[in-house]
Design a protein around this nucleic acid. Structure first.
Lengths: 233, 233
DNA sequence: CAATGTATGGTACGCCGTACGAGGCAATCC
DNA sequence: GGATTGCCTCGTACGGCGTACCATACATTG
C-alpha cells in the first residue's frame, strides 16, 4: 500500500557491495530523488518556460519513466511548488552590518534578482503554496520591520505592500522583457492608434526600459511612507 | 480561402424576411459572434476559474460545435485576451470633478474592484496583450499625471509603479482569499513550525484580512512619493 | 524460504487544443 | 435559371497532456 511520500526524504540505500564504485553499468543515471527532480525541473523551466514543463519531458531528462516521478512527488503542482521555493533561497544580508532599511532593500532586491534569473518564477509566485524559503523571507522582513520600530498593527500592512510591490514589478519586468524587435513592433502598433492614445504614445511608455532604476525608486517611495518616523495608524 | 477574422467584426446578416420575429425554431440559440463568445467565456471563467475554461466547454455553453468558435477567434489565447480586456472597461471618474489625485485613486480602485469581481482576471493581466480598455486606462493615467505636473521623465516610472502595485495587490488578494477554514488551516500549519517562523506566526500575517484598508494605505504612500510637489529626477 | 517495504515504469483512460476539410446557405454574377 | 463566391458551421482525427492502476524488481528483515 505504501503511503507514498510523506515528510521523509528519499535516501536510497545505494547498493553497498560490488567492490568499489559501480564498475559496469557505465552511463547509468544516478537514482531518482526529490532533489534531483526539482533541480531538473528548474533546468527545464529555465530552458522552456512554464508551458515547457511536462512530466514526460521531465522524466526524459532524468532518464527515467514518467510514472517513477510520482513516487517522489505528489503531482505536477507539487513540482511547481518545490521548484519555485528552491529558487528563492536567501543567504542573508551582505557582510557589512546595515541599518534596517538597507537590510530590507537588500533582501528585496535579491528577491527580485532571484526571480529574474528564472523568469517563470515571478508569475508562479502568487498561485503557489508558501514554501520554507518564502516563509523565511517573510519572517526576516517581519523581524526587521518590528525591530525598526514599526507599530505591530502596521507590520502586516507593510509586509503585504512590499510583497505586492516586488511581485508586481518583477512579473511586469519578466513579461515585458520582449526582444527589441517585439518592443518596437508594439510601439509601432501603438503609433498606428495614436489618435486614441496620444499621451502614452508620446512618452514611449513601451520603449522605456530602465526597469532597475524604476524599481529602486518606487521602492524608495514606499519605504518612505512605511518608515516608523512618520506613519502610524 | 477566407482570410478568416482580421479586423472586421462578424455582423451576421440575420435573415431578413420570414414576416415578424423568427416564429418557429423556438429555442434555438442566437447566432455565434465574437461578443457572445467573449461574454460566455467570462461567465465560464467566473464560474470555473482559469482551468475551467476549455474550448469544448465554451462551445457547449454556446450550443455550438467546438470548431465553430475558431471562425470568430484565433485560438484560446485570443479568448483570454478578449475576456480580460472586456472586464476592464472604465466608465470615467464619478460625476464630481476632483483633483488629480482623487481621479487617480478612483481609477485605480475601480480597476482593482473590477478585477476582484472576476478573480481570474488579475493573474491573467501580466501575461496578456494590452487591449483597448487597458490602454485606455494607461492613457488616462498618463494624461492625469502629466497635467498634475509630474515631470515627463518621471511619468513612465510613476505609471509602472502604480501598475505594479495595483496588479500585485490584486493578485495577492485574489489568490489569498481562501475560505476561513483554509486560512485557519494555513495558520495552524504555521503554528506547528513556530520555532522557525515566530514573528509571522505571532503577527498572524495569514489571518489578517483588511485588504481594502491595506491597499488604500499603501497606495497613499506611493502617491505621496510620486506627487510632483516633492519628487523629481 | 517468504514477507515486506522501497522504487521503477508500461499501459491505458479521458481530457485537451486545434488542423483539416466537407458541407450549408445567402448574395452575386452570367 | 444556374454557377460562383463568401460567410459560417461542425465532425473527425491527431498528437499531447496528467495520472490511475498494476506488474515488477530488488534489499531488507523475519
Amino acid at each position: 500500500m505504501a503511503a507514498k511520500r510523506s515528510g521523509t526524504r528519499g535516501k536510497r540505500p545505494q547498493r553497498m557491495c560490488e567492490g568499489l564504485q559501480p564498475v559496469h553499468e557505465p552511463r547509468s543515471e544516478p537514482p531518482l530523488s526529490r532533489d534531483r527532480i526539482v533541480a531538473t525541473a528548474v533546468e527545464l523551466l529555465d530552458a522552456q518556460g512554464v508551458d515547457g514543463l511536462t512530466m514526460r519531458r521531465l522524466a526524459d531528462r532524468l532518464g527515467s519513466g514518467v510514472m517513477s516521478l510520482y513516487w517522489h512527488v505528489d503531482n505536477k503542482e507539487d513540482v511547481f511548488d518545490l521548484a519555485l521555493d528552491s529558487v528563492l533561497e536567501y543567504r542573508g544580508p551582505s557582510q557589512t552590518a546595515q541599518d534596517w532599511r538597507g537590510e530590507v532593500v537588500h533582501m528585496l532586491e535579491d528577491w527580485r534578482a532571484s526571480m529574474l534569473r528564472h523568469p517563470w518564477s515571478a508569475s508562479l509566485l502568487p498561485r503557489r503554496a508558501l514554501g520554507p524559503n518564502i516563509l523565511g523571507r517573510l519572517e526576516l522582513l517581519s523581524k526587521t520591520l518590528s525591530r525598526a520600530g514599526v507599530a505591530d498593527a502596521d507590520v502586516n500592512v507593510a509586509i503585504w505592500s512590499l510583497w505586492n510591490y516586488v511581485m508586481g514589478a518583477t512579473i511586469t519586468r519578466a513579461s515585458f522583457d520582449l526582444s527589441d524587435d517585439d518592443r518596437a513592433a508594439a510601439q509601432q502598433r501603438l503609433t498606428r492608434l495614436s489618435e486614441r492614445y496620444p499621451t502614452i504614445e508620446r512618452s514611449r511608455l513601451l520603449l522605456d526600459n530602465d526597469w532597475d532604476g524604476a524599481f529602486r525608486k518606487g521602492l524608495g517611495f514606499l519605504l518612505d511612507g512605511l518608515s516608523p518616523d512618520e506613519a502610524e495608524r
